[in-house]
Write a protein that binds this DNA or RNA. Structure first.
Length: 553
DNA sequence: GCCGTTTTCGGCCCGACTGTTTTCAGTCG
């Protein structure tokens, strides 16, 4: 089964092998195309079928042909030929920290070393010592890189919800204990990408040394990898790399913009700057040698004739043209969320659980909550009906938050069961089953939401179709049971409303809330396209279904 | 190999840091 991810991986392998061959610009061209495929919200085969491959950024004649070959046969002949020319072990060697393509190639050509084991042998035999450019420290560096690599693979990109608490913890520790003015997390974390490869922290301070001292002492940090005058790189206990940079207050906006990326977005900005006789880098905006801006991001974008672009949109997917023409969407914000349609109470004491959930909801100024009172397997436990919910509410003194009873059902759940629990909102749990036809879905309640859409993207796409045809909202957010931002974008394009979970049912719900909101924003969603940004009355009246646009004429 | 509204050829981000150097190459982001 061809997939976008696999195609991207093959292009990346071509890039790595070309690197080892000493090619100058081709590797980056293949990587650019690979990155495009990874953020594509459509199946490659679908794009190819309508002849749209050339519209994918970074795909030209040559790569289009290779993608067609991949779709037809699952292989790329060019890659197969490269693999026969270059030993596969070199790729592993090249991924050692501090060892790049040039160094790997020299090990191969000058020492005949073709994998990590042979490299270790060569080091122990003292064969690196004669090599030009290899002093004792460099050799030590390679040796310890080999040891670390043998202990376990470095983590690749990590899901954002997994690193969320760590990232925020590091940021808050700096705010509390280091002599800093501003602290922000930049990089793909700030753009709220589904996964992050590392963390980028940016601070302003007049005492970088002290900042690094405080940071290095954080117990989450396993190793300080390097430390200079403006930058420190550390590795966390989980293996994730964190870069901390100190910049001048006057350059904070430029640095924040620069280190937030994405790379593609920044390339486009620099080219716009060049057209205007300007130069931008992490230190500011310059006309010749004169610095004309960079204290804030807004200023930087304004100098390029652009409205400020929310970080979640900075992927060079058309947002720059929108910012130039004033067409940027007004993205949903945290304050727009009025309620939550899908809250599971913690297991155990339902009254205490409800009390805690309501307290969190009030703190977030939410007006209403959909509380799951019945699940397909009966696991909602003690809270099985609306009557039970009301009793628990009274006991818990629910306060100002209004509650909606929710039945979570499978598509095949009998209507009689839904009626029996008296639910006002239905949450569809697709489970492993195939999507039912909309006509088959039980419909005694006015409001419907699809959640727990886990598993394969293909199944999720089918659910999007069902949701679009029968006007059901779909839940976005982190984890395998919610849709990610690219599916959310597809949903938005089909005029399917999104639901943004607020995390009030979880002890650590802040991450869920922030990430779900970020995914909705990455999808370009406005307040109007969010089911739980509707007021309570609207939700209850069935307005969770997105109204159809009036048809012209 | 890709790209372009000054280019269909001639560019392709560029600065910090490290280790090895005596002025620089490689890696990384």
């Amino acid at each position: 089964m061809p997939s976008n991810a696999e195609a991207a991986a093959l292009l990346r392998e071509i890039a790595d092998l070309l690197d080892l061959n000493g090619e100058r610009f081709k590797p980056e061209a293949y990587r650019r195309a690979a990155r495009s495929l990874e953020t594509l919200s459509e199946e490659l085969a679908v794009v190819a079928a309508r002849g749209g491959l050339r519209e994918v950024p970074g795909v030209g004649d040559a790569i289009e042909e290779k993608l067609r070959e991949y779709l037809a046969s699952g292989r790329i002949g060019y890659l197969d030929r490269l693999r026969t020319q270059i030993p596969g072990g070199l790729l592993e060697m090249m991924r050692l920290p501090g060892v790049g393509p040039k160094t790997t190639r020299r090990f191969w050509v000058e020492l005949g070393v073709t994998d990590r084991a042979e490299l270790a042998g060569a080091i122990e035999a003292g064969r690196l010592e004669g090599l030009k450019g290899f002093g004792p420290r460099k050799i030590d560096q390679v040796r310890s890189a080999l040891t670390t690599a043998a202990a376990g693979p470095a983590p690749g990109r990590v899901p954002i919800d997994v690193v969320y608490a760590t990232a925020v913890g590091l940021r808050d520790a700096l705010r509390a204990h280091a002599p800093v003015d501003r602290v922000e997390i930049a990089g793909s974390f700030r753009r709220c990408r589904e996964t992050v490869g590392d963390l980028d922290l940016l601070v302003t301070s007049t005492d970088p040394e002290k900042v690094f001292d405080v940071f290095s002492a954080n117990p989450a940090i396993a190793e300080v990898r390097m430390r200079g005058g403006t930058k420190e790189t550390v590795v966390l206990r989980g293996g994730l790399q964190v870069d901390l940079r100190v910049v001048e207050p006057d350059a904070f906006g430029a640095a924040l913009q620069y280190f937030t990326g994405s790379k593609e977005h920044n390339v486009r900005l620099r080219s716009l700057a060049r057209d205007r006789g300007l130069k931008i880098n992490e230190y500011g905006v310059f006309r010749g040698d004169e610095r004309v801006g960079g204290r804030t991001e807004e200023e930087l974008y304004a100098l390029l004739g652009l409205a400020w672009i929310p970080p979640e949109l900075r992927e060079d997917h058309g947002e720059i043209d929108q910012a130039a023409s004033g067409q940027l969407p007004r993205l949903v914000e945290a304050a727009d969320l009025r309620g939550d349609l899908h809250v599971h109470l913690p297991k155990g004491d339902p009254e205490a659980g409800l009390r805690a959930v309501c307290a969190r909801a009030e703190a977030l100024r939410l007006d209403y909550l959909g509380i799951v009172v019945a699940e397909p397997d009966g696991s909602a436990g003690q809270l099985r009906t609306v009557d039970a919910l009301s009793a628990a509410m009274t006991a818990a003194k629910g306060g100002a938050v209004r509650l909606l009873p929710v039945a979570e059902i499978l598509p095949e759940t009998p209507t009689s069961e839904v009626k029996r629990v008296g639910a006002e909102l239905l949450v569809l749990r697709p489970g492993a089953g195939t999507p039912a036809a909309p006509a088959d879905l039980p419909a005694p309640a006015a409001l419907r939401l699809v959640a727990h859409v886990g598993g394969e993207a293909v199944a999720a796409h089918r659910w999007l179709d069902v949701a679009a045809r029968s006007r059901i909202a779909i839940e976005t957010g982190p984890g395998a049971e919610r849709v990610d931002s690219s599916l959310a974008r597809a949903a938005a394009a089909m005029e399917v409303r999104l639901a943004v979970p607020t995390g009030v049912g979880e002890a650590e719900g802040e991450a869920t809330r922030a990430i779900a909101l970020g995914f909705a924003r990455r999808a370009g969603a406005s307040r109007e396209s969010i089911a739980n940004a509707r007021p309570f009355e609207g939700v209850r009246a069935g307005a969770v279904r997105r109204p159809r646009r009036p048809t012209a004429g």
